[in-house]
Amino acid sequence: MNPKKLFTVLSSALILTGCSNDDSSAGIDTPAPAGSVTYEKDVKSIIDNNCIVCHAAVPQNGAPISLVTYNQVKDAVLKRSLIIRISLENGNNVLMPKGGPRLPQQTIDIVKQWEKDGLFEK
């Protein structure tokens, strides 16, 4: 299987298995548990400092989406493989930020923990 097709299949599988949610309160804006990673406290500054140059309100440099709001970033994690894209190795042509360098692992781990903690806004 060619690498692009393999990446697409693996990304789809990851997204499909990670998108199920049995929590009946998923649509309610609930605060994060104490100590959890949240968008406002931890993730927004990462996006603002590393992504907004291209993923602005009006995307630039060929970026397909905006990453200005909480909902846009959450959607990018759930449906657009944001974590996979920032986790790729330098030199990969789909690594984000585009053209690299790769974000520090500690920064990537914060975004991963945000997803694991429930993608809370505040």
Rank of each mutant, 00 (worst) to 15 (best):
S87P: 07
T17F: 10
T107F: 01
L14C: 09
I52Y: 02
N49K: 13
G91R: 12
V43S: 07
L67H: 06
P64F: 04
N71I: 12
A32M: 12
D75S: 15
A32I: 12
N71H: 13
G35K: 12
A56M: 04
V111L: 12
G91M: 12
I83W: 02
P31F: 05
L95G: 09
D117F: 07
P59W: 02
L6T: 15
G118Y: 02
V37T: 15
I52A: 05
Q106V: 05
Y70P: 05
K74P: 04
K79G: 03
Q106A: 15
V77C: 06
N21K: 07
T107W: 01
V94G: 00
I83A: 07
I110H: 03
I46C: 08
G91L: 13
D48V: 09
L6F: 15
C54V: 05
V53C: 02
I28N: 09
K4Y: 11
D48I: 00
D117M: 05
G118T: 03
D42T: 06
S25T: 15
I65K: 03
V68Y: 02
N61R: 08
K44S: 10
I65H: 09
A13E: 10
V77W: 02
R80I: 01
L119V: 01
Q106G: 02
E89R: 11
L14Q: 11
K112F: 02
S11T: 13
I108R: 03
L16C: 10
S87M: 08
P101C: 08
P3A: 13
L6V: 14
N71L: 14
I84P: 01
V43C: 08
I28C: 03
A63D: 03
G91P: 09
S12T: 14
E115I: 01
K79D: 09
I86M: 12
G62D: 01
R85V: 01
K44R: 15
K79L: 10
G27D: 14
N71P: 01
D109N: 15
I28E: 14
A34T: 15
L67C: 06
K79E: 09
E121T: 00
N49S: 13
K116H: 14
P101N: 07
L10M: 12
I15M: 15
E121L: 09
D75Y: 12
L103N: 02
N49P: 00
F7W: 09
P64E: 04
I83S: 06
S12Q: 10
P104N: 09
I47D: 04
K112P: 01
I86R: 11
D22R: 13
G100A: 06
F7N: 08
G91D: 11
S25G: 04
G118C: 05
K98E: 09
A13C: 14
N61Q: 11
D109T: 01
K116N: 11
K112V: 08
N61P: 00
Q106I: 02
C54R: 04
S20P: 00
S36R: 05
R80G: 00
L67F: 06
I83D: 08
Q72F: 08
N90E: 15
P101Y: 06
K5Q: 14
D42F: 06
D109I: 01
T107C: 02
N61F: 13
K4Q: 14
P101S: 10
L88D: 08
G100F: 07
S81F: 03
L6R: 15
V58L: 11
